[in-house]
């Protein structure tokens, strides 16, 4: 990459002065964030805090209203950027998996490699097999997504992103749509990925995962970053009242709701599984 200088000193993800509005609704209000190479950062916060929007701005699934985003030294928000080229270096995993239902598991992994990276059939198949093995689903290679459990689908989605050889992985609430007993397998895959040194930005409600795996935890509320530090600083010993309140709600939502006098259904995404 001609525009990527001094690999080791450039943060893998850099967000500067990021604003995002949907109509009159200002969702992000000045976000500054750096994620170093190999760093695992968990973004937590109540629903509507803008954490998913921030993640989606990193690979430009949402177009920021103002501000800059850099990935691997390339300015994603630059008007002349080849966004398709940049996205090849950014893997993304969605809450709803978004596997291609008309393709088998293997085809889900090979089609993007062949169409986007122009790999030949044999190489694409080899990379697909490697990555399916990585998430422990080699035996499902010929299955269709609809025949898999949610946890298996999400692991295939991770393998699909990995097959493109990304430098960064973005996770948008990867376990929120899963039945509780299926969450563990997906988190185990993510944990292994983190240990292998992948740069990861994870929007999640899994506090145990954040505490054990993350290098840093970022707490967002109301479209700003309230707190940014180690898991111990943010989760165990939060400095801000808003963080404390969010965490107490997460640990005992019924109590928090009673205290607040709120209807529980107002923020269903804030409930832990």
């Amino acid at each position: 990459m001609s525009d990527r200088t001094e690999e080791t000193n450039v943060p893998e993800i850099e967000v500067r002065g990021l604003y995002k509005s949907f109509g009159d609704n200002e969702v992000l209000r000045g976000i500054d964030l750096e994620i170093g190479q190999g760093e695992v950062v968990c973004v937590i916060g109540p629903s509507g805090s803008g954490k998913s929007t921030l993640l989606r701005c990193v690979n430009l699934l949402e177009e920021p209203t103002k501000g800059q985003v850099f990935v691997g030294g390339t300015e994603v928000t630059h008007p002349d950027v080849d966004i398709d080229e940049v996205r090849r270096r950014i893997g993304m995993v969605f809450q709803q998996f978004n596997l291609f239902p008309h393709l088998t598991v293997t085809e889900n992994l090979t089609l993007p490699q062949r169409r986007v990276l122009k790999r030949d059939k044999a190489e694409a198949a080899k990379v697909a097999a490697e990555n399916l093995a990585r998430v422990g689903l080699s035996e499902k290679a010929d299955a269709y997504p609809s025949s898999l459990s949610g946890g298996q689908q999400q692991r295939v989605a991770i393998a699909r992103a990995l097959a493109m050889g990304p430098e960064v992985m973005l996770f948008d609430e990867p376990t929120s749509a899963l039945d509780p007993e299926l969450v563990g397998d997906v988190l185990a895959v993510m944990r292994r990925l983190a240990n292998e040194g992948m740069t990861m930005m994870v929007v999640t409600h899994e506090m145990t995962f954040a505490r054990e795996v993350a290098d840093r935890v970022v707490f967002m509320d109301g479209g700003v970053i309230v707190e940014d530090g180690t898991p111990e600083q943010v989760i165990t010993d939060p400095a801000h009242e808003r963080t404390r309140h969010f965490l107490s709600r997460l640990l005992d939502p019924a109590m928090a709701d009673v205290e607040e006098g709120e209807a529980p259904q107002e923020q269903p995404k804030g409930l832990p599984n």
């Binding site: 699934l61 398709d84 080229e85 996205r87 709803q96 291609f100 993007p112 986007v116 990276l117 699909r160």
Partner: peptide, 13 residues
């Protein structure tokens, strides 16, 4: 579903 286009775009299509 909209997620299909998003998944494809985020893979670099």
């Amino acid at each position: 579903p909209k997620g299909q286009m998003e998944a494809a775009r985020s893979l670099g299509f």
